[in-house]
Design a protein around this nucleic acid. Structure first.
Lengths: 230, 230
DNA sequence: TCCCTCGCGCTTGTGTACAAGCTAAGGAAG
DNA sequence: CTTCCTTAGCTTGTACACAAGCGCGAGGGA
């Protein structure tokens, strides 16, 4: 799985996370194989890995399709992230094995990226901020243990989470940055409870944005099974 | 992946969980293919799924080997199980969507299996108790959400956890059963904090047994990187 | 007009052959 | 005798071909 399969996996993953694949879209093996100029074998491998990542659902004789997130799933997602990332922050603060220099640098780079006017920043800036933010969180997770990061992948590498920063208002963005700074401060102080609390607030704030975003969005006509068609 | 791959996956999984595969043992594709009378293709699929389950580790050009658990991994495992299963119990108690009848029946069947003398019970009885216990826990998880059960699979379907009941003393077994009963009572009462506390105690008690078990066991000479070979 | 059934086509599941890379053993040189 | 290099074998990665199942549409009958 070293060469082709890895490439296909990474590419498809990026497509799904970046929203370039509609939720529910079928992923036919041969089509993907043709697109990447490889055979179906590495494609199958990539799809199975995406399934393990929780990004696609594969049904025995029907193939793979991009996973669809329901509203209650999103609510549970936020709940579990708050629980686990809060725990991660506490452990990182207590164990003291987290690299504060790296964290502060990530904070600075994020803030620098947001410096420009929100209008001129565009999608590209939001993508970069998203990347840096995920890197920051991941750094905390790694400091908290070996099993935890693998568990959190399924909760964080999710389209729904990935798009959050694209929708943040200026105020929400600033609050997010402030929470990052406070988190670093709590970690530096070795205060587990403080770190956990900040992280929980951070996650739940993002959750609130997500919720308000998903309510008023009738963009797609067929968002559910149409009830009685006549 | 519907027929052969599923069978191979299930079989290998059972072997690993049952301790019939040494941790660190290499799993060569052709060997397995021959054993099951299939080609390497479904075997590869099964191995990738086992990797997703966290039961094997596959290195790019070296193939798959049964995962090895270090002592700190086990400690973290207990920590995370206490956190997540505690949360699951709380949610199940609050939401009230858990089937108490099923839970009580599982309790009864477990206790019935333990009725016989510990000597006459043997391995077979411990296996059955393990199965029932996992079914009980899983029932609680399912009542707590849709994402949580998938997350917990990686923490529960683990050789070390699976073997717990084989090592319980009579007293530990009875305490475990009592905690199950108390958990059901807390769930019936809809008391989230109570349920979470019982579950946490239940998990951590098992963790203590695990710890005491792994300390005095110099069975394998090479348990670590031998320091200085001369 | 509606429903049931038959059959065709598309997609995935599996088997097989070949290519590529890693490991380890053996030989030659210092 | 030790060490490095070469080569051979083994194992995984990929391509390709065939088999099997499922869905969907067309056609016929009630």
């Amino acid at each position: 799985m070293s060469q082709s399969a890895v490439r296909v996996h990474a590419e498809l993953r990026s497509d799904i996370l970046g929203g370039r694949c509609q939720p529910g879209a079928r992923l036919r093996e041969e089509e993907i194989a043709e697109r990447f100029g490889v055979s179906r074998t590495p494609v199958r491998e990539a799809l199975r890995r995406l399934e393990a990542d929780g990004l696609v659902v594969v049904t025995p004789r029907r193939g793979a399709e991009v996973v669809r997130w329901r509203d209650d799933d999103v609510a549970e997602l936020v709940e579990l992230r708050a629980l686990l990332e809060g725990h991660a922050a506490r452990r990182a603060a207590i164990d003291g094995g987290v690299d504060l220099v790296v964290l502060r640098e990530l904070c600075e780079r994020m803030e620098a990226h947001a410096e420009g006017d929100a209008e001129t920043r565009g999608e590209r800036g939001a993508d970069e901020i998203t990347r840096l933010n995920m890197e920051l969180h991941r750094t905390v997770h790694r400091a908290a243990g070996r099993l935890l990061p693998d568990l959190l992948v399924r909760l964080i590498d999710v389209p729904v989470v990935r798009r959050t920063f694209h929708t943040y208002s200026e105020a929400e963005l600033q609050r997010s940055f402030a929470q990052h700074r406070e988190l670093v401060e709590a970690l530096a102080a070795g205060d587990g409870d403080w770190a956990a609390a900040v992280m929980q607030a951070h996650i739940r704030a993002a959750g609130a944005t997500l919720r308000s975003l998903r309510d008023p969005e009738p963009a797609r006509p067929r968002s559910g099974p149409d009830p009685g068609g006549r």
